[in-house]
Every structure is written in C-alpha cells, then in structure tokens.
Nucleic acid binder design. Sequence first.
DNA 1: GTGATATAGTTAGATATCCTAACTATTAGG
DNA 2: CCTAATAGTTAGGATATCTAACTATATCAC
Lengths: 154, 154
Amino acid sequence: MDTSAAECARVVLQTVPVMMRGLGSHLRSQTGLNLSIPQLRTLMFLRRHEGASISDVAEHLEIALPSVSRLIDGLVVRGLVRRQPHATDRRRVALALTATGRGALDAAQRAAEDYLAAVLIRLTPSERSTVAQAMRALRGVFAPEREPVPVGAR
Amino acid sequence: MDTSAAECARVVLQTVPVMMRGLGSHLRSQTGLNLSIPQLRTLMFLRRHEGASISDVAEHLEIALPSVSRLIDGLVVRGLVRRQPHATDRRRVALALTATGRGALDAAQRAAEDYLAAVLIRLTPSERSTVAQAMRALRGVFAPEREPVPVGAR
DNA sequence: GTGATATAGTTAGATATCCTAACTATTAGG
DNA sequence: CCTAATAGTTAGGATATCTAACTATATCAC
C-alpha cells in the first residue's frame, strides 16, 4: 500500500515529537547525567571528529555559530570537552573530549538507547524490523552522509 | 529480518533528533509564524480539547505545571490562546484557542507537514509506506491513546 | 461547620536552546 | 600592505525545562 508524502508527514508529525520529548526528559533527569540532546549530539560528533572546530560542530548540528559557542562553554565548564588552540590557524579552536567526557558520553548514549529499547521492546519483532528500515530510509533523506572531510584540517 | 530492540534503538537515536532539529528550525524561522514545537503541540491539543486546564495540557505534553503556565503565558501574550475562569472550580483555568490562534495553528501545522512532505517526497512510495507503518507502530507505544475523559469537567 | 489536606496555578530562580547583531582576531588575496 | 573573508565570542532576547516555595480554592473527616 503506497503512502503519499503528505499522509506520511502527518503521521510523522504526530509521532516524532512525542518520542523526542520522552527521550530528552529521560536523558536530562532520569539518569543523573543531566545531558540534553544537543549536548549528547555534540559529544557524539566530537568522538568521531577529534579536533573539530566550533564551525565544524555548527555545520554538523545545523545550528548557528554563537549557539555552538555557548553549547561548548557548558561542556567545557562541566569538564567534558577541552578547547585547544589549533595547530596552524590561530583563529580556530580544536575541540576534544576529555576522559570524563568520553565516560559521560558512553553513559548517556547507553541511557538513551536503553530508554528507547525499553519502549521498543513492546513492539513485535516484525514491527521493530519495519521501524529500523524506516529509520534507515529517513536517515538517508534527513541526515545524508557528508563525504568525510578531515575535520579541522582545511 | 528481525531486529533487536537495542539495534532498533540505535538507529532511532541516529535519526530522530536530526528530523526534529530540521522541523523545529523550519517552524521557528522559515515560516514567519515563529512557533516552537511545544507551542504547536499545545495549540493542537487545545483544538481537540476546548476548555482544557493547565494540568490537562501538562499531562498531555508530559511537562511540569510551571512550564505549562509559562508556555501558555507566551501564547496568551501573542493572542493565540484565552485564559478563562472555569465554570465550577475557581482554582482552574479554562483554556481556549482564539480565532487568531486557530489560524496560526492551521498555518503552522500546514508548514510543518509541508516541510516533512518536501523531504519525504524523496523516498520511494514503498519506503514511505514503511515509514508510515513504522510511525503508527511507534505512536502506539510512545503516545498511547488515553480514554477521552471530557477534559476540564471532572 | 471548621480544620487539615489535597489540588490548581503562579512566581522565582536556575540552566539550556536557539536566534541575530555587533564585535575582535586572524588569515588570505589582490 | 590593505582589504576581504573567516573563526569565534559577547550581548541581548525569546522559549523550554526543571524544582522549590507560594497563594487560592476545594474537599474530606470529624
């Protein structure tokens, strides 16, 4: 059975904000880690891109530079991220996870996945398969892979 | 092909925040309506539940009472929602959309759906069908229907 | 009935998420 | 070199959340 984009959009709009609300709330309070989703996404990006700049993060998360600057401030204050001078460009900042940051990231990611898994367990295996397929398709259009430019080295 | 809850959780976590980021951003700035997702969800709830109280909204959106109080403040200041005295319980507030609010809601919902549809159009019809099915399944576990208690009349 | 308790909502104060505009450094180009 | 572009921060604003503390009203128990 085919589904129009409009019809599909409607059911997405009815569903996705609720999932996010639950996930964010769980991450923020339930786990003692007190990380928001943007903070988690930032840490995940920095794990994959050691030495990334503020601009790199902004581009990846699609948020404005000043917003990232503040976001990083918070993570630095909490000891999860280090701001270091860039090797060759003194305008830039090279960001990196601290050991604490890596630990917090692992814990938060596990907490997020556990939360989702605990809800998803109520689906049938076949429904979960449908969900996974759907998510992969959505990722393809909402979060297209960018060619892996060696971050911070342009 | 079956999919474990953990595996499914992982791909959900990689996908859903990106979608929400795009949607929120679009709603906030692209449309001139300047409504956030919680604001949109509140208006949608009030359309279905004329006369709902602050607590009703809090319960539906799963956010704390004071948060709702402020959220409503913003909508009232912008003329989208009316706070009225409850007929029989003077502790309560009966919320209702204004005509302006109804208009803004329609426009915002259309904007949100159009945004999503514009991205979803890039999927094949069969992929969209999978997505719609997945969303319905997810809605079942993340946003279970509550029996329709006549809101504001307990 | 009245006094304790429970419920509805607001206020206050905190941190985080976003934005735009305006600024400071630094680098790169003509 | 001097101007342009780039990287980042600061400032100021609206919204999103929370907890704690408060007011007002309703209910229950005796």
